[in-house]
């Protein structure tokens, strides 16, 4: 997948950060506004795919030395982990909890375990999406 396209590259260089920021924003805003693990994951995943399409595999891989299968596996582990984790606190399977914490500098913030679960979802989506596209793209 070696495409030498100057225009694409220049555009992508600018756009990619917007997309990545959007993805992260969508992920975190999910609890109270549109967004969440799936959407955030999908946007981030497609951003990564865009990178792979614009630059060749090796270059991107050097900058992001992840095995995306493992990223997906980590996501599944996080999602199931929070589910099982609630048992350890003597709560029913998959109970989520939330609370307000006073964090220095940031002030009082609303933190929930759903975020960990959602992070798991997002990582799985990113990992799977990139794995699928890369596997097909790499195959000759």
């Amino acid at each position: 997948m070696k495409i030498n396209d100057v225009i694409l590259r220049t555009v992508v260089k600018g756009v990619i950060f917007i997309i990545l920021t959007l993805g992260v924003y969508l992920f975190f805003s999910g609890h109270n506004a549109p967004g969440g693990g799936f959407i955030g994951g999908l946007v981030l995943g497609s951003a990564i795919v865009l990178l792979y399409i614009t630059y060749d595999l090796e270059t991107v891989h050097k900058k992001m030395p992840f095995d995306f299968k493992k990223v997906a596996a980590l996501g599944v582990l996080l999602a199931t982990g929070t589910a099982v984790g609630s048992i350890l606190f003597d709560a029913p399977f998959l109970s989520q909890t939330d609370g307000y914490f006073n964090i220095p500098i940031l002030g009082e913030k609303h933190l929930t375990t759903v975020t960990i679960f959602e992070a798991g979802v997002a990582l799985t989506v990113i990992g799977t999406l990139v794995t699928i596209i890369l596997s097909i793209g790499e195959d000759e």
């Binding site: 609890h31 109270n32 967004g35 969440g36 693990g37 609303h110 759903v114 679960f117």
Partner: peptide, 11 residues
């Protein structure tokens, strides 16, 4: 503890 109903259903 969430205001996005769809998202709380999912999560």
């Amino acid at each position: 503890g969430g205001k996005n109903i769809v998202n709380t259903i999912l999560g």
